[in-house]
């Protein structure tokens, strides 16, 4: 088991077809070359954790997948369909749920309105109910303005917003950022409950959370993939962590 996971390469894995594939993706913020040829796969039903230092290009990778930033080179495919040139809403409608780094809940809308807005054609009431079940805290606050919620509750709204549709893939950007440890545990529990029912590409700096959720790990540094393998492998390799994640040796 361990030997097969170690042998996995970033781009071509045997067995299952990837849900998401990035091949040699380049993107820019203004004139800064941020992603310099990123390639990796996300396999169905698994949680792939995107690791790397601040500024390595993790958030940019998610934004480029969504089309919020144009990929100037390379291709991005979801279930084999090329979405590199599609507009943001078209990309998302192929079945992507996005939980952004800063949550970006709509402060002036109620919790309920935030979730209803996220429902795409075909979204069922049952899924909405399940999203509420996952976060009992939100259930009783449906009529409350999202702007009046605590940071943790806002994070729950942001995650719930990605769960109200029958998505192929969730892109989740640093769900633990700026949250108290108790709340991080709550969020982790919720995501563990989601895990297995859907495919997730997770950006996370908090190694404990990454370990709890991750199956596969992709490490990027300076806009390039420097390591791809299993999460267990990264967890056990302190040298790797020290080199690319800025943990261990020099925190």
């Amino acid at each position: 088991m361990t030997s097969t996971t170690i042998e996995r390469s970033a781009t071509a894995r045997t067995g299952t077809e990837p849900i998401l594939r990035l091949a040699n993706v380049h993107s820019y913020i203004a004139e800064s070359h941020i992603l310099q040829g990123i390639s990796f796969d996300v396999l169905p039903g698994r949680v792939t954790v995107l690791l790397g230092r601040n500024g390595a290009g993790k958030t940019t990778t998610l934004r480029t997948i969504l089309g919020l930033l144009p990929a100037r080179e390379g291709t991005i495919t979801l279930d084999g369909a090329n979405l590199t040139r599609d507009s943001v809403h078209a990309v998302v409608r192929r079945g992507i749920g996005y939980v952004p780094e800063d949550r970006d809940v709509f402060a002036g809308l109620t919790v309920e309105q935030n979730l209803r807005l996220a429902q795409r054609p075909g979204a069922t009431g049952e899924r909405l109910a399940r999203a509420y079940d996952l976060f009992p805290d939100l259930k009783k606050r449906g009529a409350q303005r999202a702007g009046s919620l605590s940071g943790g509750q806002q994070q729950m709204v942001a995650i719930a917003r990605a769960l109200v549709n029958d998505n192929r893939l969730l892109l989740i950007d640093e769900p633990s950022k700026g949250l108290a440890p108790v709340v991080v545990n709550q969020v982790t529990e919720a995501l563990v409950a989601v895990k297995g029912t859907t495919t997730i590409l997770l950006v996370e700096q908090n190694l404990a959370m990454a370990r709890a959720l991750g199956d596969d790990a992709v490490i990027i540094d300076d806009g390039r993939v420097v390591h791809a393998g299993s999460m267990d492998e990264v967890s056990g390799d302190e040298a790797l962590q020290a080199r690319y994640l800025g943990v261990g040796g020099h925190a």
Binding site: G67, P70, A71, R72, T84, R85, D86, S87
Partner: peptide, 9 residues
Amino acid sequence: AVAPGKTTE
């Protein structure tokens, strides 16, 4: 300005 969104450059 560089156009946001996906371009075909």
